[in-house]
Amino acid sequence: KNAAQIVDEALNQGITLFVADNRLQYETSRDNIPEELLNEWKYYRQDLIDFLQQLD
């Protein structure tokens, strides 16, 4: 998997990933985040941060 796929997957589930103060953050109206997504975000944290910062 790559960062773009993970960001896309999150968006499809109503979750927006973004970077604030060099930390990976998310916004969602969901009550909870599936644990497998959280684990994936932790595992790919630096890739996601790098990818999202390139988009800014």
Rank of each mutant, 00 (worst) to 15 (best):
K1M: 15
K1F: 05
K1C: 05
N2E: 08
N2T: 15
A3Y: 03
A3Q: 02
A3M: 12
A3I: 10
A3S: 04
Q5E: 07
V7E: 00
V7T: 03
V7C: 06
V7S: 02
V7F: 11
D8T: 14
D8S: 14
E9T: 05
E9N: 06
A10K: 00
A10R: 00
L11H: 10
L11G: 05
L11T: 08
L11I: 09
N12Q: 15
N12H: 13
N12K: 15
N12W: 11
Q13V: 08
Q13E: 09
Q13F: 14
Q13N: 10
G14M: 05
G14L: 05
I15E: 01
I15V: 09
I15H: 03
T16A: 07
T16K: 15
T16M: 11
T16L: 13
L17H: 02
L17I: 06
L17N: 00
L17P: 00
F18R: 07
F18Y: 12
F18Q: 05
F18S: 08
F18A: 05
V19F: 14
V19P: 03
V19T: 05
A20R: 13
D21K: 05
N22T: 05
N22Y: 07
N22S: 09
R23Y: 11
R23M: 15
R23H: 11
L24S: 00
Q25E: 09
Y26S: 03
E27K: 14
E27L: 13
T28I: 03
T28V: 04
T28S: 09
T28A: 06
T28H: 06
S29D: 13
S29R: 10
S29M: 12
R30V: 09
D31R: 09
D31Y: 08
N32E: 13
N32F: 14
I33F: 04
I33Q: 01
I33E: 01
I33W: 03
P34W: 03
E35Y: 08
E35A: 10
E36C: 07
E36D: 10
L38F: 08
L38C: 09
L38M: 10
L38D: 03
L38E: 06
N39R: 11
N39W: 10
E40A: 06
W41I: 13
W41C: 02
W41T: 03
W41S: 01
K42E: 15
Y43C: 07
Y43R: 12
Y43Q: 13
Y44E: 01
Y44V: 02
Y44G: 02
Y44F: 08
R45P: 01
R45T: 13
Q46A: 10
Q46P: 04
D47Q: 14
L48C: 00
L48R: 00
L48V: 05
I49V: 07
D50I: 12
F51I: 03
F51M: 03
F51V: 02
L52G: 00
Q53F: 07
Q53D: 06
Q53H: 09
Q54S: 11
Q54A: 12
Q54K: 14
L55R: 14
D56V: 11
D56I: 12
